[in-house]
Design a protein around this nucleic acid. Sequence first.
DNA 1: CTTTGCACCTGTTGGC
DNA 2: TGCCAACAGGTGCAAA
Length: 271
Amino acid sequence: MPELPEVETSCRGLAPLLIGKPVTSVQIRKARLRWPIPTELPDTLPGYTLRAIHRRAKYLLFEFDHGHLLIHLGMSGSLRVCPVDLTPEKHDHVDIVFAGQQCLRLRDPRRFGAVLWLVEALHEHALFKHLGPEPLLDDFDANYLYSKSRQRMVSIKQLIMDNRIVVGVGNIYASEALFMAGLRPTHKARRLSKQAAEQLTLSIKQVLAEAIKLGGTTLRDFVSGEGKPGYFQQKLQVYGRGGQACYRCGTCIKQLNIGQRSTFYCPHCQA
DNA sequence: CTTTGCACCTGTTGGC
DNA sequence: TGCCAACAGGTGCAAA
């Protein structure tokens, strides 16, 4: 579920519902996520008002006057706002309860997600220190990607999925951006031409921007918490389409593994 | 330093 | 229909 567009959609959807509200309590039902949820959280947050919600890479950052609550959705996480007395389901691990009886509820069946409390400056934290630029900002451009790709033996797909190069390009959108750019995912990063770097940066920006505009691959109603199939799913050109005909040329879409992640491309459209 | 592969989990899918 | 292996949108980390 959560690639960058979903995280951004969550961020934008939650903000108007929660910003300006004070926390009244915190319920932790299962603390074992990727890392244990800090046990002091129920003593740390109540009484403090949520000031803002930020996104950096796929991390959501809930800003309070005394620190940031970090939430990562991992592979299967989702957030919703619901009445605090709504019975939690099996994988609803955490509630952040706000004044007004509404709570922010984290669901995460696979528990690859994370909830952390950060007091230090964000740029000093180990998780943020080595992150590359945001793909949608101007400091991610063709010159940057070209220079970072020099001397690199890895495939171009692995390069753009590397958080230290650029953040937020997940497995779905990596395949999609490479299709849009007409580049084969197996292409060695070091052999990327200046022109291809230009095309690829534009494609990454375009694919992510459009997915955000459409609310990601899953649409979520933050109040009731109901998820329904999103509009971007029907826009996917290659991801999940192994064995089917390319929409552009009719050639059979190929599927292979790159770095243990399934990868899709059109052998005719992508050189 | 770069590259590779594993680990962490549960739910769903596809082949037999 | 039922069973079980394979696989799933992420990413930090250890080891080579």
